[in-house]
């Protein structure tokens, strides 16, 4: 493990903590896309099935369980908590799951390293993670006032992606057998999706203003 990956993981963890704290402290999930959160839960379930049959490190296992637990906790708050669920922007969060899940599943069936159930599900999770942020970005585009915690949540997720790319570059340079084109291409697409958001995030941060995305 290198420093880039550790930073990436920590930003990922921090983004989830910020979101969970926002929901718990303000009893509100305004501006958060349940679709994106459910897609992330699906991503984690498909990718971390290896918890049952392979062990890499205590760190990895601990983080996997943490990501799974927090993802389901967020979904539970947004769907079932009596107070929180009333603040969910149901009418605005209209992105269709099938538009993301179906192409990713098809692609995973065709483009994978090995045609086994766990490998296809792992590959599916890589593809799905790349586009799972889209419902959140669409929701933010529709919301006039994006609160700071939501903006910071997405910015932290973007930082996680950025550090993972640095990690891949580092591993590509230092490890002989690190040739992961599936991960590379999905990762670059995923990070590129944030580029537009980051542009406006930086503009508003410089001007010390609340984030507003142009329509």
């Amino acid at each position: 493990m290198n420093l880039f990956r550790l930073c990436g993981d920590m930003f990922h963890l921090l983004s989830i903590m910020v979101l969970l704290l926002k929901i718990r402290a303000t009893r509100s999930c305004r501006g958060i896309s349940l679709k994106t959160q459910e897609l992330y839960a699906l991503v984690f379930v498909c990718r971390y099935l290896d918890l049952f049959y392979s062990f890499i490190s205590v760190y990895n296992s601990f983080m996997k369980v943490t990501f799974l637990a927090t993802a389901f906790s967020i979904v539970r708050y947004m769907r079932y908590d009596k107070v929180v669920k009333q603040t969910y922007d149901r009418e605005q969060d209209t992105f269709r799951y099938v538009f993301l899940i179906a192409p990713c599943l098809l692609l995973a069936l065709v483009l994978n390293h090995r045609f086994t159930l766990t490998e296809v599900l792992w590959t599916f999770s890589i593809y799905l993670e790349a586009v799972a942020i889209l419902p959140q970005l669409v929701l933010m585009q529709r919301t006039q006032n994006i609160d700071n915690l939501t903006a910071n949540y997405v910015a932290l997720l973007g930082a996680y992606r950025g550090f993972y790319i640095l990690n891949w570059i580092y591993r590509f340079a230092t490890e002989r057998h690190y040739r992961q084109w599936i991960v590379w291409i999905s990762g670059v697409i995923q990070t590129a999706l944030y580029a537009d958001f980051f542009f406006y995030y930086a503009l508003c941060w410089k001007a010390n203003k609340r984030l507003q995305l142009p329509a």
Binding site: D9, D50, S54, I56, H113, W122, H177, Y178, I182, V183
Partner: peptide, 10 residues
């Protein structure tokens, strides 16, 4: 194990 190398990431 080259195809498996990204499996040690999260």
């Amino acid at each position: 194990a080259s195809a498996q190398s990204a499996h040690d990431e999260l």
